[in-house]
Amino acid sequence: MLARFWHSDGFWMLRRSPAAMIAGLVAFLVIAGAVFAPWIASTDPYDLASFSLMDGLLPPVWQDGGMAQFPLGTDDQGRDMISAILYGARLSLLIGLMAMVIATVLGVGLGLAAGYYGGRFDAIVMRIADVQLALPAILTALLIDGIARGVLPSEMHGDVRVAVLTLAIALSLWVNFARTARASTFVERNKEYVQAAMIMGQHPLRVMFRHILPNILGPLLVIMTVDLASAILLEATLSFLGIGLPADSPSLGTLIRIGMQFLLSGEWWILWVPTLFLIALVVSINLLGDFLRDVFNPRLH
């Protein structure tokens, strides 16, 4: 199995692409750091007792006044920046991944069915997609957030924040999956292996999921990567606009928003540490997406 992977074309291309290797490494480190944050981070940024205002606004260790205990400095509350970004990345990735999974399931399901059945069902799904397209990602997310504010009593806002945010992002991303899955299904549907399955009298669900789906996974995987990156960006943007996650459970976007207040003062690290971390994460995911696109491009083989 490992040997097969090592000799596969995909891995051969990976070895030839230093950018993709570095990207893979960065993404791996960030994800590992986020997953294992509770064990790696020196303090728990959600636990008010674990840090003290006394340590507030300490610069990174290489600047005058920096302390070895806080390698990248602290924010105004005295939180360790490293702990804050690890926990922040954990939250950002969690929301991004969940949103992407929901969008994939919803979009691929509808797209497959629309492409397979065609006709009226296809028309309805595509008209809904049209409406969704007229209301772009940020707008949809803002809107759902707005509705949640209107419908739910204010004391509940904090608790359902993550769910609302995830749902909002997922809803704004499904169209991409649906359109791609539908277009690929249209092509596959007329291929002879699908016709063979239909002639045999196989159940439509079996034809869709067992026969067609494995053959359209390539482009979908590319979109999944790219959309994971967009989901993370979207979450950061919403948090930046102040309607994402609150300051007591900060995601990367929230950290950047907090850092903005220090843009003009000397404490540059409070803004730039989470910002650069976010950019590194998204760039590496996008690089991997680009790489996957090449791997799945039959012409490059």
Partner: peptide
Amino acid sequence: LLTTLVGVSIPTFVIGIMLIFLFGV
């Protein structure tokens, strides 16, 4: 290509902040 890849990876608001910081401040 590399520049644009980084370009799509930076959130719009961060680009705005950077521009404000550089050209404004």
